[in-house]
Design a protein around this nucleic acid. Sequence first.
DNA 1: GATCCACGGGAATACACGGATG
DNA 2: CATCCGTGTATTCCCGTGGATC
Length: 389
Amino acid sequence: MDIDARIKRRERRNEGPRLIQDYDSLSPVAHIDEPSDRGPVFERLLDHLDPVFDGVLPPNAYVYGEFGSGKSAIVTALFDHLKRLSTEPRSVIHTSTRAASPTTPGFVYLDMRETTSEFAFYHAVLDSLVEDSVPEHGISTEELRDRLHAILGESRNGIVVAVDHVGEPNSTDTTGLIDLFAGLPSNVSWLAVGRADPERIGLTTYTATSINVAPYQRQMLVDVLMTRASEGLAQRALDHELARRIAEWADGNAHDALAALFIAADRASRAERTRLLEEDIDAAIGEIPQPSVSLAQVLSLPANKQVVLRKLVDLDADDRASVSATTEAISSTVDLSVGTVKRFLYEMAEAGIVERVQSDDHDGKGRPPSRVELRFSPTAFRRLYDLRQ
DNA sequence: GATCCACGGGAATACACGGATG
DNA sequence: CATCCGTGTATTCCCGTGGATC
């Protein structure tokens, strides 16, 4: 949390006792600067990246672990720091514990949830390497590749690209990843991040190292929750015992734990309480589907798909009875055609954002309809979505 | 004028069922 | 009885067009 945020929080606190002081600290889709208790994982990542401190590019690698084990939190935090290190002037570098050589490679972090096309990929890499912004239109993918070759050819330091969320639906799989990097010069090394076992997705032939991130242990998750609560909520709003309760239920999944805290806080806030109660926690837990999809994944969908979802979470049971009924209800309130809304729903079902379940009532005629059920908490999505508008 | 990609819209395919057929 | 066929829906797939931007 930076100083501005700290000051803002103090200012708001003077406005009176409000439960939710800072949504950013509480948001289950935001990563904090210094993930707690992940020292060993950082060390293993730094071991792998060690060559960069001698100005040498490390080999390709893969970081993997279960949903909510903190992969993204760790990698984003680490790359943030490394990025700063490689751009800081030497005088500053000298004062740090681990001196970086002046030829440190560059660091780029990419979330493949957001770079969904070849064009978007090269664009994102190039954009992170040059000062001025790169046009998003009127420039061909080939032109982007040419510019990247030109820029990377100038410096022999090269870059390390972290590629997050590999292997998710709508993201990039192993062959896609290899193809994308085939379009880049050889002084580019990648660090893929995903959930799947390296062998299962055939990644081991391309990597020198695989680093497994174990799920959070109970006590670590409690600490994470207490930290978030102390930064985002009023004083003493979250009882330690309730944090334990959430951690126990979440079973190592930090995403679900933070989502539960967020929903519980939202519930208590609407009831105008300044402390979380057991019933808030229970209600929150009851609202999170198991298994659930990452809220970050939902919030990185194209804008119009999110519009459709935003309408969907407010529909009543009648309008959710079938895909057709849901489509009708949504398309009447949205500036999209019936066909498009329906296609969106099917596509999101395919991606696991929602789930199609066969409805029990069908009148014998034709193929039985199905309805869509959410694979995420409606309250959490509603609040996070509205906060962004 | 060039480029990308979101939309729309429709064609193709899958599925369920009842009734006809061998 | 097993299989095929026709009909009505549901679902998937595909591709041209046009908006937005440079």
